[in-house]
Simulated assay, not measured.
Amino acid sequence: MRRSGFLLPIVGLLGASTARAADLDLTEFKASPIAPPYYSVPSYAAPSWSIVGSISPTFTDNALFTRDNRKPDVYYEPDVTVRLDGHLTNDLSYRLYARAQYEAFATEKDSNFAVARMGARLTENWDGWRFSAIYENRYDFDGVYRDLAFASNDVMGSVARDFRVNNATFSPLLLLTYRFSDLAEARRWRFDALLGIEVKLDSRWSIVSTPLFEAYWFTDGLNTGRQDQLYSADIGLKYNFASNVSLTTTVLYEARTSNVPLRRYRDVRIGPRLDFAF
């Protein structure tokens, strides 16, 4: 998952090539505003632009994400997405987006990486459930947009829903992905199951958590037959400055198991994250 330039030739064998939970932009799967009846508003079909993102300085006790040679460090992660949203019918919405994200470490520069992606999502709302089909063209870089490590095309399908119980919101999400890539070792199936939890304390403060399970099945190259599982649990305190700006301080524990012993690791991350949407 982390690599330096001299490791690129063997990234498929020793690099995880499987982004962490942070790779999932949970806001991508939030419910879209309900469209008005098709014939009631002349401007109904007009799409809307938005910019969403986050900035998060974070401490980790395993900057290299390895089983051995654990090193603590602090990294900085900007993550920005430009979106175009619209509706085809009352229940069928679409989203086109471009997203840029990188992690820059204070000391362990070999852990620096970046991702650039463009994608499209089509979502059907049915009886409170959201079914999405997603295509994403993705470029993974060694360093902060330094050298291209590999390019890939992700095809995804997801189902999600929000449940509200008093002052708590539970948002389960199931996501299945297959990655086509110019690097054989990066081709794989990925399954995500997570539960977004937000408990409002008052109009501004909330307790948040997103327990997560991920499973990977690699299909080609030196990674053929490799299977990884990732588990993470976190707890955070969120403060809403406004409806579109919030600050969340989180403690997260993550563990990866694998049938390749060198890919097993554990990690603790602590830090604030500023989220915004305009």
Rank of each mutant, 00 (worst) to 15 (best):
R117G: 01
D142K: 03
Y178S: 04
L96D: 02
S56H: 11
L26F: 13
S54P: 08
R204H: 07
R263N: 15
D147Y: 11
V82A: 14
S4N: 10
V165K: 13
P37H: 09
S246H: 02
A19H: 08
L230K: 08
L88M: 12
W217K: 15
G196Q: 06
F191W: 13
T177E: 14
S243G: 09
T18G: 15
T27K: 09
R256G: 00
D182L: 01
R146I: 02
N125M: 14
Y39G: 13
R204Y: 06
E28V: 05
F191C: 08
D182E: 02
W49H: 05
S171A: 15
W126L: 15
E108W: 02
A120E: 04
D142T: 06
T60N: 08
V260A: 14
G128C: 02
V82D: 12
T224H: 13
A22H: 12
F105A: 01
G225Q: 00
T27Y: 14
L274A: 04
R2D: 04
D162L: 07
D192T: 07
D91E: 13
V115R: 07
E103M: 00
F278H: 04
S17K: 07
D154I: 00
N244P: 07
V268A: 11
N62W: 01
R263Q: 14
N244H: 10
K71I: 09
F65M: 15
D61A: 01
G236L: 08
N62H: 04
R161I: 03
L8Y: 07
F180E: 06
Y94W: 03
E214W: 02
T210L: 11
L230F: 04
F278L: 12
P261V: 01
D140G: 01
R164H: 10
S206K: 04
T60D: 11
V74E: 07
R164P: 04
F65L: 15
T60Q: 07
N125C: 08
A35S: 07
P272A: 01
N137C: 06
A168V: 05
S32A: 14
D228V: 00
F213S: 05
N244D: 12
K109N: 09
S93D: 13
R121G: 12
L201T: 06
A63W: 07
A100D: 09
A106C: 08
W217R: 15
S111P: 11
K30F: 09
S4H: 07
W129C: 08
N90Y: 11
Y75K: 05
Y239T: 00
T224A: 10
A233H: 11
E185G: 10
Y76V: 02
Y139N: 15
L262R: 12
E28L: 12
T257Y: 10
S17T: 06
F213H: 12
I134N: 15
N137T: 03
W126R: 14
T107I: 09
G143R: 05
F59S: 15
D73Q: 01
F141W: 05
E77F: 00
L148G: 08
V11N: 10
V260P: 09
R179T: 02
N153L: 00
A45Y: 10
V251D: 14
W205K: 06
Y76D: 05
W129H: 13
G5S: 09
K71L: 14
L13R: 13
Y145P: 00
S32Q: 15
V41R: 13
Q229T: 04
T219V: 03
Y145S: 00
T58C: 06
R138N: 08
R266T: 06
R83C: 03
N167H: 13
L201W: 12
R2W: 03
R146E: 12
